[in-house]
Design a protein around this nucleic acid. Structure first.
Lengths: 313, 313
DNA sequence: CCATTGCTATAGCAAGAGACTATAGAAAGT
DNA sequence: ACTTTCTATAGTCTCTTGCTATAGCAATGG
């Protein structure tokens, strides 16, 4: 059974006439006759009664017609949904992002994305860098935002920005200057993430580079919780500057640059190299870069208060 | 879009591997690759992510898959129902039959037919001969049983039987012999069908042949009503012998043969010559002939009392 | 009653689509 | 580094399908 035969069949059924049906499907009448009779032979039954002037469906033809019509509709639908997807008017985009990046980058990004592609189902999961990677490899994520450097044969990395870590101290803590050496951290009580967290490991790595051993007085698993603890004077902490900056507005925290060496790390966009990402993902990636440019041009970003319709699991 | 492409697509989707899919659909791997990439090109999107070891559907592929699967199911169904029809396990047969023939031939015939083809939807309409013909020409009937002779260029007639008309008289009417000349009808009060009925015309035609003018004392449009009137002594009537015979059992009617000339007419099976009739109609025609042979071998047929599930409109 | 018209089926020929073999090229496993 | 596994490409050949011309059949009109 060939799709061509089905199309011809439908044409004859509607026009009740081989010659006109042939015109309608842009073939010669004999070609159409041959195809129809081929179909009839394959099915073992006449589908049309050739009654001289008119051609009408037999019972078999009628039964066949109902199903054939539905089949063609389904194929049309199949092509249609794919084209909708291509125009990004349909589809699903699953992104995994570092939780800190999530808070300052994703929030405005999602707003823009939803404006442009209101019908794309967007999911943004806050995940540690390792799970972003495994999610990409396991095909559970379309895009990932994770730490650099990362060299994996199956993944492509696009560097997005450099995150600087800054010291966050309670307002009453007396700091000599607006800057502090990494070595001076050794005498400071710190509130940090638990040891199995990515952010903690990064802080420890930076301290190790400077040859200091941080004095941890409290471990909390949520960055916001840590900031509250700091605001209450429990100690200082070290967090990505971009993450903390919008939270400084309330005035109960002070931000101190660290140096010698300045703690920083790259953040990049990752995806499976061989995987076809689709227009929605491409656009998301583009929006990432423009959003970052905007963030960097406005050092003190006002807190975004809009409610976003994305799920962060 | 070709059906071949859809089949190959489904195979790759299920096996997640081009080579094995190719084996499964009995083509070489390159042929399958070409077809898939042709489909992708036509749709403007990748349908599969070739991830080295595995091949998985893209989002577009998944969307396409659901519809493609349904389309294939519909086509399977289309072929299936046609085959069911071919095996006479499905379908509809619409027969138009003369009302008199209807009563004695169709009743046992329907019983047999329903036994052999329980799933065929059978409709038997009691119609005058002219409407049988127009019904066939208008494609509203699959088969017809009508009067002979009938020569129509589009219709094929198969003679089935000769119906003899007989005089039916009340039991108290004194008849000299069991036979009566047509001429003697002139003095008999008759109960006949109204003039626009086929049966009435036939009776008048037979009388005309014998040169007599029937004396009609009552007109009724139902043969059974006529018989009741005759039984009550209103007059005699003329009806097909086969129709009346099973109704003689009650003993309130007597049947007298007519002769000189014997009134008779042929009855035949009719259908559109060019129309494909299908196995159900073929079988119905065969059953007609066997049933008639049975009827003629048992001159006094017992009244069939079974309830039949056919509609007579 | 013959000729014409309208429609479908068949025959023969030309072009194109698809299938196959061989092979390149990339990635995963040993 | 080598081998294996898998997909993509190139070239050749065959089969399918399309086309034109025409036969054949029924209905219609002069």
């Amino acid at each position: 059974m060939e799709l061509r035969q089905i199309h011809y069949f439908m044409a004859v059924a509607t026009h009740q006439n081989f010659s006109r049906a042939a015109e309608h499907v842009h073939v010669s009448q004999p070609s159409l006759s041959v195809q129809i009779s081929g179909l009839e032979q394959e099915l073992g039954t006449r589908l049309f009664d050739r009654l001289g002037r008119k051609v009408v469906l037999t019972q078999a033809g009628e039964l066949f017609h109902t199903h054939a019509e539905r089949a063609l509709r389904e194929l049309e639908q199949a092509a249609h949904v794919v084209h909708e997807l291509h125009g990004a008017r349909r589809g699903r985009l699953i992104v995994g992002a570092l939780s800190t990046v999530n808070s300052y980058l994703i929030t405005p990004l999602v707003t823009k994305f939803k404006q442009r592609f209101p019908d794309i189902q967007l999911q943004v999961h806050a995940l540690p860098s390792s799970e972003v990677v495994s999610g990409l490899l396991g095909n559970r994520l379309d895009l990932g935002i994770c730490l650099l450097p990362l060299a994996h044969p199956q993944l492509t990395m696009v560097p997005l920005l450099e995150e600087r870590l800054a010291l966050i101290a309670p307002p009453d803590m007396k700091i000599v200057k607006k800057r502090m050496r990494m070595q001076d951290l050794a005498f400071l009580p710190l509130v940090l993430m638990p040891v199995d967290y990515c952010l903690r490991k990064m802080v420890e790595a930076e301290c190790a580079k400077a040859g200091v051993h941080p004095k941890v007085v409290l471990e909390m698993s949520s960055p916001d919780g840590i900031l509250e603890a700091v605001a209450e004077g429990t100690g200082a902490t070290i967090l990505p500057e971009l993450y903390v900056r919008p939270r400084l507005a309330r005035g109960n925290l002070q931000l101190i640059d660290l140096y010698d060496p300045a703690p920083r790390h790259g953040v990049g966009l990752a995806f499976l190299t061989k995987r076809y990402r689709g227009p929605a993902a491409e656009e998301f990636a583009r929006l990432c870069e423009t959003t970052i440019r905007e963030l960097q041009s406005r050092p003190t970003l006002p807190r975004v208060t809009a409610v976003h319709s994305y799920r962060a699991g």
